[in-house]
Amino acid sequence: MFEGREPIYHQIAEAIRGEILSGALKEEDQVMSTTQYATTYRINPATAAKAFAQLVDEEVLYKRRGVGMFVAPGAAAALRSQRREAFFAERLEPVIREAALLGLSTSDLTDYLASHATTGVSTTAPDQTPEER
């Protein structure tokens, strides 16, 4: 846990976003309190609070006074559309660069994608496919 180079609170926020995208946290679900989060992951409560504050700012979470933090309605969809925008630039770009270094042609890539998509849906690819409809 928390092995990345980004500040810990970024990593926590990212982990919660991931849980929302995967469906582990659903809209209107209550998320752990700062204290619970801090003691569970053995991190400073202020760090956890910072992550939550960031997610509230992004309207991924919202606060119910005296009760706790909840996943905002539409959070998953909003995150997904953000991710889609970023996907090509942040994820695919490096792959294409790497492919170029390795001398793979565009058709090699499209061939692979075409064949992988048919097998992938039924067997692997657990990340994003289930809720993609």
């Binding site: 700062t34 204290t35 801090a38 003691t39 053995r42 991190i43 400073n44 409560p45």
Partner: peptide, 14 residues
């Protein structure tokens, strides 16, 4: 030690 860390964080938060 785990219990200690837990208590420090929990009591500090409260």
């Amino acid at each position: 030690r785990q219990r200690f860390y837990h208590e420090v964080l929990h009591d500090f938060a409260e």
